[in-house]
Amino acid sequence: MCLLWACLLRVSRSTSCFSPVSCSSWAAAARRCNRWVLGVLAAAVAAGTAPGSSVRAAPGPRRITTDGRRKQDLAWSPDGRLLACSLYHTAGQIGVALFDPAGRLVRLLSTDPVEMAPAWSPDGKRLAFVHVTHSGTDGELDIHEMDLEGKTRRPVIEERKAFDMYPSWSPDGRQLLFTTTRDRTQEIYVSRADGTAPRRLTSDPSLKQHPCWSPDGKEIAFNSNRDGNFDIYTLDIEGQNLLRLTRERASDTWPAWSPDGRHIAFVSRRDGNPEVYVLNRDGAGARNLSRAPGFDDCPAWMPDGRTLTWVSDRDGGWDVYVLQP
């Protein structure tokens, strides 16, 4: 019986498809073809994508985490040394976690059952995030901030009977962008960094998600269904000059502005499944970067401006991949 359960446990945890089996399969294929070159290439590919490997085998996204747990809301620290995200770490629990660039879990910051959607302060010392307060089995979503140890915490946006989400610090650290349902529709607001002086930027009955700042702090990008399905829009920080960037008959969501301000990465279902796309600032030149049949979402640029990161289930689990487009 012990053997049985040990076996069950082992198999249930082996969610990676890059197991020794896959390596040996490649080798077997090479032998059958009797082409040693193919064998060498196959081994290189398998090794390059194995957990913990730093070898880049071929052009294409490189996997950096290997635990396979669901991750969302990726955000790189300003110095590029830490990746914050929402991590589904235990059954029924979602917390803010920090990973290093090699994909190793540095620390789980959340002790409460549900905390998520972290956003870095520009000085890299604090994280704003969505905090859930339970009353019975009802949850209320507010925005809190904490230090990188998860010890010093304080509420920033607390509006009773409203759901506050998607915090995003302005590039100068003085303002906070977020969505809220305080007006009985989901609207985008901006406030001072301490949560005071909230100001409404949008006013229409559509849904708005994932607002993020342009690097110069003059505009925001977000997705909304104001014209039917979800598309990507930009808006200046006074709530004027709305510009629709995508016009597909499929959802476009999760905009992420590149550090140089020239591109916006986003998630599109135009190919039938969620794929990571990038387009130019004016909405032209959309192209698919992920190109996998499964789920690719939550894009985030690294601070170098040349590397894009996202979450994909292409290898069975939910892991973080990086690519230099």
């Binding site: 029924g92 859930v132 019975g136």
Partner: peptide, 8 residues
């Protein structure tokens, strides 16, 4: 309920 509401 969802995770946010103490569910699964």
């Amino acid at each position: 309920e969802a995770e946010e509401d103490a569910g699964d």
